[in-house]
Amino acid sequence: MPVSVDSAKVRAIAELARLAIPSEAEAVLATELSAVLDLFAALAAAPVDGLAPLAHPGDPTLRLRADLVTETDQHEAFAAVAPAESAGYYLVPKVIE
């Protein structure tokens, strides 16, 4: 399944990934991504019928923590590394809902 990516597709994925891609870089990325997709094409031939996907090595099950308050209030430490913060709020440009 040779799939290739064009500049429009790069723009669409970049929008999903929230990356500003300069228009002159789109073609380069399109070529690079197409090359990666060519690599992926080999997967189609793998004999995986009847095999369950493996998302977690070793197929562990979820361990649950006790229902106890364990977190301490660290909001000042977190606020200290924030680009823009005021009175416990992270600030972003006005969002119109």
Binding site: L43, A44, V48, L51, A52, P53, L54
Partner: peptide, 16 residues
């Protein structure tokens, strides 16, 4: 399905 899910099946194939 073609990429992520298939790759995870291949992953089991490799683990096996």
């Amino acid at each position: 399905d073609a990429y992520y899910l298939r790759a995870q099946r291949v992953r089991r194939l490799i683990a096996n």
